[in-house]
C-alpha cells in the first residue's frame, strides 16, 4: 500500500516536472517572439523614418517626433533587457544616492510622454514627500517606468493614472493606480512571472513587471498589486534609510564592520 502511495507521489512529481519543461520550452519561443516584436518593430520604423531626416530635405516636426518616440521606445526595451541580464547574471549593483522622488517621477514621465500621449492618459500626482531620501535612483526610475508604462498600455485609453506618494516613519509607499480591468488577483503569481500570459489572454506581461519586482527586492522593498472596481493599483513599499549605506557593506551594523581578527581560517 505504502509503495503504491510512493509511486503515485513520484508520478505526480514527474508530471509536474514535465509540465515545467513544456512551459519552459514555451517561454523560450515566447522570448524569441518578444525580441522580434519589441526590438525589431521600432527598428523597422526607424529605418523607414530616418531617410526623411535627410538635412537636404525639409523634415517635418511630425517625422522628427515619430523618430524620437521610436528611439525612446527602443531604449526602454533595451533598458529592460540589460537590467534582466544584470539581475539574472548576479551582477546587480545598488548605488545609493540622496534624491527627491519628484525628480525621478519627472524623468519617468518625460521618457514615457510618447506613450502617455498616444494613449490619451492623464497623470495626477499627490506627493507628501518633498525632502530628499536615500535610494538607488536608476533602479527606482526603472521600477516606476515599468509600472506606469504597464498602466498606460493596458489601462483604459483616455483614462487617468494616479500616482500617490506617502511616507511613514520607516516606509515610503508609492501607489500607481490606473483605470481598467487589470489582471485578476488569482493570477498574481503569473503577473510577476516573465513572459507569462494568464488564462485571461495576453496582458502583455513581458519582463517589465518581473524586473520591477526584483528591483524592489534589491532595494529591500516589496511590489504588489490590488484590483478594485475598474482600478488596478500597484504598490511599491521601500524601506526609508537614514543614511547612505557603505558600498562595501550594505546593511551596516557592528558585526559587518568587525575585523576578522581572531576569525577561523578554512
Amino acid at each position: 500500500m505504502k509503495e503504491l502511495e510512493e509511486i503515485a507521489f513520484l508520478s505526480h512529481k514527474i508530471l509536474d516536472l514535465n509540465k515545467q519543461l513544456i512551459e519552459s520550452e514555451k517561454i523560450k519561443s515566447q522570448f524569441l517572439s518578444l525580441v522580434a516584436s519589441k526590438l525589431n518593430n521600432p527598428m523597422t520604423a526607424l529605418l523607414g523614418l530616418i531617410p526623411h531626416l535627410d538635412p537636404q530635405r525639409s523634415c517635418s516636426q511630425e517625422v522628427f517626433d515619430l523618430v524620437h518616440q521610436e528611439v525612446l521606445h527602443l531604449h526602454f526595451q533595451i533598458q529592460n533587457l540589460v537590467m534582466a541580464a544584470e539581475i539574472e547574471g548576479g551582477m546587480l549593483q545598488i548605488d545609493y544616492a540622496s534624491v527627491t522622488i519628484q525628480s525621478i517621477i519627472e524623468d519617468v514621465l518625460r521618457d514615457l510622454q510618447y506613450l502617455i500621449d498616444a494613449q490619451g492618459i492623464t497623470i495626477t500626482l499627490s506627493n507628501t514627500l518633498s525632502s530628499p531620501f536615500i535610494t538607488d535612483p536608476k533602479k527606482l526610475y526603472l521600477i516606476l517606468k515599468n509600472i506606469i508604462a504597464n498602466g498606460c498600455s493596458y489601462g483604459t485609453k483616455g483614462g487617468v493614472i494616479d500616482i500617490s506618494i506617502t511616507k511613514s516613519k520607516y516606509i515610503l509607499t508609492l501607489e500607481i493606480s490606473n483605470q481598467g480591468d487589470g489582471p485578476r488577483v488569482e493570477f498574481k503569481p503569473q503577473v510577476f512571472q516573465r513572459f507569462a500570459q494568464t488564462a485571461e489572454g495576453d496582458h502583455g506581461l513581458g519582463i517589465g513587471l518581473s524586473i520591477a519586482k526584483e528591483l524592489c527586492g534589491s532595494l529591500n522593498g516589496v511590489l504588489d498589486y490590488k484590483v478594485a472596481k475598474k482600478t488596478v493599483t500597484f504598490v511599491v513599499s521601500l524601506d526609508l534609510l537614514s543614511k547612505i549605506p557603505n558600498s562595501d557593506a550594505y546593511g551596516s551594523d557592528e558585526f559587518l564592520f568587525e575585523s576578522f581578527d581572531s576569525a577561523i581560517e578554512l
Binding site: E23, S24, E88, R194
Partner: peptide
C-alpha cells in the same frame, strides 16, 4: 519558475 531566473536560487547561482 516564477519571476526572473536569478542567482537568489542555488540551482541557478552555483552553475552560474
Amino acid at each position: 519558475g516564477n519571476g526572473l531566473q536569478t542567482p537568489k536560487y542555488g540551482n541557478i547561482a552555483i552553475p552560474k
